[in-house]
Design a protein around this nucleic acid. Structure first.
Lengths: 341, 341
DNA sequence: TACAAAATGACCAGCGCTGTCATAAAGTTA
DNA sequence: TAACTTTATGACAGCGCTGGTCATTTTGTA
């Protein structure tokens, strides 16, 4: 029926204590024994009972993922990555979608952690960028890993996985520049998300490097939504000197921009180039498909979980080395073209 | 520190067993005792440990959601609904994305249930339509609720939540008919998903009622994907007598059809009406926005979870009454118009 | 060959709770 | 009031695992 540690021990011909030692990779176990036990575990499809471990141990075997993100594809990818890492390490994942702007959010997070005895938490924007959350978590002594926008590991931001939006945006902008565009506009995402700021900075840096100063009218504030893209692009395309290319802060905004351009009978990419960011399924299902930057969310999530597990385990508490950096890659599709003269 | 059942028992002056009885509202406890215990729990801010309960009890306090669906919005909506229901009843939700076509899938599901001691499972297509899964689950005596396509409760399909695709498709088709279309094509979803068959049946029924027989060439097999929509529509629009309207089995297919039409410089909706199904965010972010059918996924999920909890609890095991039926509603947007003569 | 070091097992308590069964209190009947 | 039924409560084992303590066996090394 149910496979327990006893079954594994019997099958491997060792004591349950040794199986336990292997599971918790305690020292003083021969490699041969480790292999035997692992094999027995595999063959029996053994999965340690998280409930029992949580109960017996001072440490805990579940981590939480708190999120408030309208982008379903992002969330699903993150979940996948976290789940994969959890399965590998015998952890459980507790998902907790909630409202980041709710007034009681800090208490809500604390309650969640304490009630469910979480070993740690993975935070994505906007939670990863809320200092009050980080403080609260530190104060109750819970490990957490933040996935944030940033390009260079720094000791200030410990336990972070960095997504280098700056460099990615720099590359995207270069792509546009190489196509001959110089009148490039930028549609921002939400102010609160630092990713938007980082992408904008990368954009500006690329322009500056070519000696172009960004036209202030070409930088349009907004939010990470289709509607915002529509609005921003409509505004841009009403300008007397229209841009020849638009860099949208994500694919949804880009889709909105595309929509707006189409309403005005502007041909994409012949009359206007548009780029997105994220490589969400949206970007493949617009017409034309969007040039964008691919963000390996699932891998990023795995990396975050691994970091959490490493922290949780005693020993190696290194600092700056533990800051993986991911650079989204340029993905050229059909929404960008040589500037028309 | 951490308050346990012992603290409550001590405070209330009863045994821990009695506290347990109160928590699980078991019979045979005097009202006075119940009050005493409840008060003690309140004063101590007592929260029972889910881990301990799961470990000790034959019943469990978590349910699982197994899925294999490329549509992230659908999955997220389902999760939301399930999570809401779980929170209300003090349950935990375990999510388990996996591959329905993997050869070991039945064993995988069994392992999951046994290992995590799940109280029950919520299944959506394709899992809800796999007889081998239902059999396996029954054989190990685990409760489950299936969300499936169907219009009439039947004793055969116990523990099901029905989504009436037939009626919804019938209504959508009527919408097209009322706009004067008679040359209507249908882009199918995956054969394995009965929703596709149900929608097709509703489509045919609406045509038949108006005395139109469906042109066999207008019924194109496919799958629930953008690509399939592109392919199907391309095929249809190459026909000597093109359809004037296309009913796509879901929004992604519809988006694909839109894409294909656009490639051929066909104006939507002036020259061709297209409808989708599901009201996913996609349908709002195409140009023009899609006429579609709104499926209240989150509500459906809640209803499924409630059904599961009701089953799990002893007593009321009614049959046919427990089959909620949801009918997706027609949502007219801009991808459909009067047929052009 | 002797001896230290490493690897493993045997055993026990206990995490916080529930299930089972025994027992005590209360209610009913004649 | 005895005899008995019903209802309320408690004692205790045990869920699957960890963490500790020792004892024992196997290995490596001088």
């Amino acid at each position: 029926m149910k496979v327990t540690i006893h079954d594994v021990a019997a099958k491997a011909g060792v004591s349950i204590k040794t199986v336990s030692r292997v599971m918790n990779n305690e020292p003083s176990v021969k490699q041969a024994t480790i292999d035997k036990v692992n094999q027995a575990m595999q063959e029996l499809h053994y999965q340690p009972s998280a409930a029992a471990r949580n109960l017996a141990s001072t440490k805990s075997y579940s981590i939480g993922y708190i999120y408030d993100n309208p982008n379903a594809y992002y969330v699903i990818d993150m979940q996948r990555g976290l789940l994969d890492a959890c399965r590998r390490h015998g952890y459980e994942l507790l998902i907790h979608p909630t409202n980041a702007k709710s007034p009681g959010i800090v208490q809500e997070v604390i309650d969640l952690v304490q009630h469910s005895r979480l070993a740690g938490l993975v935070l994505t924007p906007p939670f990863s960028e809320m200092p009050e959350i980080a403080e609260a978590l530190s104060s109750i002594n819970v490990d957490f890993v933040r996935i944030i926008s940033g390009s260079t590991p720094s000791p200030k931001q410990t336990n972070c996985v960095l997504v280098d939006d700056f460099t990615a945006a720099f590359k995207i902008t270069n792509h546009l520049l190489e196509l001959g565009h110089s009148q490039i506009a930028f549609l921002c995402g939400d102010d609160e998300h630092s990713s938007s700021g980082e992408r904008l900075a990368g954009f500006k840096a690329a322009l500056t490097k070519r000696g172009i100063n960004a036209n202030p009218k070409f930088i349009v504030p907004g939010s990470y939504s289709f509607e915002s893209g529509v609005k921003g692009a409509t505004q841009l395309l009403a300008l007397p000197n229209k841009p020849t290319a638009i860099f949208a802060c994500n694919d949804e905004i880009a889709a909105g921009a595309l929509f707006s351009a189409r309403l005005q009978h502007i041909e994409i990419p012949q009359q206007l180039s548009i780029v997105g960011f994220e490589n969400s399924p949206f970007s493949r299902q617009t017409w034309p498909p969007l040039t964008t930057a691919h963000q390996p969310n699932s891998t990023i999530a795995q990396s975050a979980a691994e970091l959490l597990f490493k922290h949780t385990r005693p020993g190696s508490h290194s600092q700056t080395e533990d800051q993986p950096v991911f650079i989204p890659e340029l993905l050229v599709r059909e929404s960008t073209a040589q500037v028309s003269s």
